[in-house]
Amino acid sequence: MTSKDYDEPWHETVVRVLRANGVDLVTYIPDNVLRDLIQALHDDPYFTVICPAREEEAVAIVAGAYMAGRRGVVLMQTSGFATLPNALASMIVPFQIPLVMVISERGVLGEFQLGQAIVCRTMRPVLETLGIEHRAIEERSHVEFVVNGMIQQAFATQSPAAIILSPLLTKRQH
């Protein structure tokens, strides 16, 4: 796969797929890897973009909006996800809320902070324990299919979903 197969950077594909699925509310706590995506969302008047103080708030805002008929997505880093098990286990999963999370994976493939690497190891066990559908995107060519499929399945099955952005997608030269 050469770079010219993808004139569109991955973050623009994500924005396009969110729009196509009627997802127009975005809450986030930033991560450097998500910078271009966050900027593109802020620049696009289609989206309402909210940056609260904590990931729990970000999740609860999208959950409330869903119950009131609006589709949202939450962006965060792995360390942000690590603050969420209580909110996921006591709200999102039992209330059957189709929360779509986009998590940039920090702590693998070249991590330099031991703490980040250890935090990252907690993510998949939590997702698996809670039975939350999750998939890491590693290939540029998979972005559209995986993001679209995860969003559609979440809303169709009334279940939360975690789309993990691997450094293989976000850091590797494509």
């Binding site: 509310l25 309402t48 909210i50 609260p52 729990e56 708030e57 999740v59 609860a60 805002i61 999208v62 959950a63 409330g64 909006a65 869903y66 119950m67 009131a68 008929g69 609006r70 949202g72 909110a87 709200m91």
Partner: peptide, 13 residues
């Protein structure tokens, strides 16, 4: 989380 949930409802409607 009551206030953030309510914020989401308020933004949606």
């Amino acid at each position: 989380l009551a206030a953030p949930i309510a914020l989401g409802v308020a933004v949606a409607q």
